[in-house]
Nucleic acid binder design. Structure first.
Length: 215
DNA sequence: GACCAGGCACATC
DNA sequence: GATGTGCATGGT
């Protein structure tokens, strides 16, 4: 696909999605810290299961940096059971909290002052945080313009011929970041809309492209 | 009962 | 560097 036409197509897809679905109001969380926790909990997991775990954390009044930092990994694992992979995710949350206290005094808002690219490298160096989780935290919790690439986004872009199936995370992210205005609001809404489209029309084995709004 | 869900790390070749 | 596997619950 030619570059100029890529830019046009990507922008027109956004407009079509927004026209069909409207604003998605992402990320569904009250505070930046809640976004960060949710980003780790949602790894390869249905969001509904994450909501249950967040509710558990709130109910036990531990959805705060200090509280999770001091909670035992086993207690934390019990509270987040509904997300699946609860042992590994409890460990990942604790590792992230240690980073937050070691580098930012346990205050998520202190991260905002650092540049997006520097933060990205820091986050990626944490065990349990890969590119999608890092970018979700950067975009949705810290308002840094990084485009989030998830399984839906990749599948949609492959099916529409923008990228090859074996493209790397960086390849796909570059496609968006080099062709769109680097605006937090646009990146936020666009990714949320792609997930919405994916959920309804672009399932793994069942492409329901007939009524797809992109057609 | 199979398939899927807003991934990531690690072992092995 | 690429490919495979473990991690695990809950909805459809």
């Amino acid at each position: 696909m030619r570059k100029a036409s890529q830019k046009k197509k990507l922008n027109s897809i956004y407009l079509k999605l927004f026209a069909s679905f409207g604003p998605q109001h992402w990320w569904p969380a009250k505070t930046p810290f809640e976004v960060m926790v949710g980003a780790i909990l949602t790894q390869n997991t249905n969001w509904a299961n994450v909501e249950k775990a967040i509710a558990q954390l709130k109910q036990h009044k531990v959805l705060a940096p200090k509280r999770i930092y001091h909670l035992s990994t086993s207690k934390l694992a019990r509270l987040i059971k509904s997300v699946g992979y609860y042992n590994i995710k409890a460990k990942r949350l604790k590792t992230f909290l240690k980073f937050l206290f070691d580098h930012y005094k346990g205050q998520p808002e202190k991260m905002s002052r650092v540049s997006g690219q520097k933060l990205r490298l820091e986050l990626l160096s944490i065990n349990g945080i890969g590119p999608e989780t890092a970018d979700s935290i950067l975009l949705y919790a810290l308002q840094k313009p990084l485009f989030v690439i998830d399984a839906y986004t990749r599948r949609i872009m492959v099916r529409h011929g923008f990228i090859a199936e074996d493209s790397s995370y960086q390849d796909v992210q570059n496609l968006f970041m080099q062709n769109l205005k680097k605006e937090v609001k646009l990146f936020n809404e666009y990714h949320a809309l792609l997930v919405r489209l994916g959920k309804e029309f672009c399932l793994k084995r069942r492409p329901l492209c007939k009524r797809c709004p992109l057609k």
